[in-house]
Design a protein around this nucleic acid. Structure first.
Lengths: 220, 220, 220, 220
DNA sequence: TATGAATGAGCCTTCATTCAT
DNA sequence: AATGAATGAAGGCTCATTCAT
């Protein structure tokens, strides 16, 4: 029997919504597990359990474990990429380097697995590392470097030092979240607490202001 | 057949030597594989292949994969611990903070998997993380903090900031090696090359000298 | 909503027609897939795809895969059984053995999967083999044997040879279609083409006329 | 410790022998199961059970189920190919067509799964059918045709009929074994018994002698 | 009736581990 | 000590089937 298209579309919409929800749940669970055990170490069973669905359901949405991992990287990292793109880094100089730092720290805080996913991929020298580097880190760092260049009189550091400064920034932001369990164990306080993040933000600010005193004076 | 005890002991000595060699080869291979794929992601077959021995041989030396992993952590990290213990951090103030930096960077360079093992444990919040933190990082950082305290007039930073400074140091030293594949991909040059290490060492020195100007003046 | 019974019945009729159509489509698809991969090797998903319906729809018509297979055997073979029953084998001697041969070959041609289904059941010694043998082949062969007996003076062959002659007939008719892919590959021409079937028909005729010369003279 | 090479080789030989035995057992079991359920319908678990080994052991010898199937076809069919090659079909005309028939029937009897494997592959139009046709059936049939040509005065049949005669021969020999379960069910007696085979042999002989009367007179 | 979503069971394969030599 | 062979358990994935709409 041909249904009333209107009702059919309503039903289909509900079904699609449900599917989208399930897919999101699976993706979140996968992100969590992959971010802890890596691509090889993660178990699909564990992901399914974390998502609260049957293992077979995973395969209604993703071809295989590898495709799921790719989706985690793509869609897990995407929000931060998008956010960074929209950020007015060099629109008119209004966004200070301090705001940039806050912005990034805030986003990494909201997506606690991103840093760890990237670090795991880096440590295992995974096949997606090239993509992460080219589509992600290089644009991000270029923005930062441009900001530094435009905001200082360029006498503080030589251009050749920028890579090291960029790496320093990566360590202090991404590393802060990736290494959180160890830091908590060593120092006793949770680095991902609001206080911990705030302190780390201040440290980065302080370092930048020390390294680029002219930047400091200029823009803030 | 009754053997000549003398010859037997000779043979036994040779045998023991051979066994020690095999065990070392296995441990090195295991360290390499675990440092890349983590405890769960590593495959014993891959370790055996990397060691050039039969898989069954592993089990002549280690009860199981888990015991092998523990041995990797214990014995893989041990040399650096030992080295640090022997180092005259605060014997008579002769060892400058620069020397300490060089010393640690050099050791991490020689054991390229140590940083990654630790990072993997930290990211996965592994069961050995407590041990690593308490037996390893805390003593190391205490030495450093003591050094800072004794070497400066203590006006540069408040004591409460020491954890963050310690963490900063971890990121810049251990993180430099753990993240090497990503950094290489992003910046194009190998961070683990002599030049890359030298530059990183200088960066750390520079930061320390900026953060602790009195330390800088005092000891070097 | 209270419906007008008249319209309801119209709708029900249309619905029933539609359902009958769907069921036929599913059955045809199932026959095709089962005839190729057997009971165990066939995949319900493949059947649903071939039928152009959702997998779940299969289960509106058949309890499970096994019931579908039984239906394929029952209803797939039924038309030929029915046709043979209606055929005036020994009504009044009007149907010559040549006509019988043509008749069977024609029916096997129209239902290309029947031969293969039977062969697969035979090869796998399936649980429906008994049924096929008793309800299908034995009646068919008895008709043929009766025909031979009544049409000849019975001097050509001993009665004990009839099984072998019957088997010969099976091989040359059913086997011709079941083995078609191999024969095509070996000889280059399609045995299921009109020409191929015609030639095979002639071969059977020739053999029969050779084996039963008196039959040959009598009835044609 | 380096062993005495002599003893080592002895041990290795024993090990290799054991492995060869296991591989043979697996292959035989696989042949049996594949010959019944086909490539898709066969279950590796069933094969392992039939071989009396653990499922994982299969994978010490064959990459996967498909490779095992290929090995079954290759090595399962090979003995008959070899046997046929060595047979003096046209050495000096000493081997009569009756001997050829006996020879083939005997070999098919000894390897009861060969006929069924071929039939299943034919029915499913499998990917190895081409190979079977070209490397196996065509040579075999060419030998037979050559035999027929050389042994008769060639007046009995036209050359264009040879394919049909060849196919007839396939049906009566291979089909006799492949279809054995059905024939047994229909006729009550086992076609693969010595008596059944003997009778089938005679039937083939009879048909040949009828179809090629001059051949009959000449060579026997 | 038809279907997209979901699932438990089962399949193929690999894993970590043990055995026998 | 070392290894090829063997295995139980677990892994990833697919299957047949059911649910909910």
């Amino acid at each position: 029997m041909i249904e009333n298209p209107k009702y059919a579309s309503v039903r289909e919409a509900a079904s699609a919504e449900r599917a989208a929800f399930t897919q999101r749940v699976i993706l979140d669970a996968a992100e969590q597990v992959f971010a802890r055990y890596g691509q090889q170490g993660a178990r699909v069973r564990q992901i399914a359990d974390a998502a609260g669905v049957n293992v077979a359901t995973l395969y209604n949405y993703y071809k295989n474990k590898n495709a799921l991992y790719e989706a985690v990287l793509d869609q897990g990292l995407q929000p931060i990429i998008e956010a960074l793109k929209e950020y007015p880094f060099n629109n008119n100089g209004e966004a200070s380097y301090k705001e940039i730092i806050s912005f990034i720290m805030e986003h990494l805080h909201e997506r606690p697995h991103v840093s760890r996913l990237i670090y795991l991929e880096a440590i295992s020298d995974g096949e997606y590392l090239k993509k992460i580097a080219s589509k992600w880190f290089r644009p991000l760092l270029e923005e930062i470097v441009t900001k530094l260049d435009s905001g200082t009189n360029n006498t503080d550091w030589e251009t050749s030092s920028y890579p090291f400064i960029s790496a320093l920034f990566i360590h202090l932001s991404f590393g802060h979240f990736a290494l959180a369990p160890l830091l908590k164990e060593v120092f006793g306080s949770d680095p991902t607490s609001n206080e911990g993040i705030e302190n780390q933000r201040k440290l980065i600010e302080h370092l930048v202001s020390q390294m680029f005193p002219t930047l400091n004076l200029d823009s803030n």
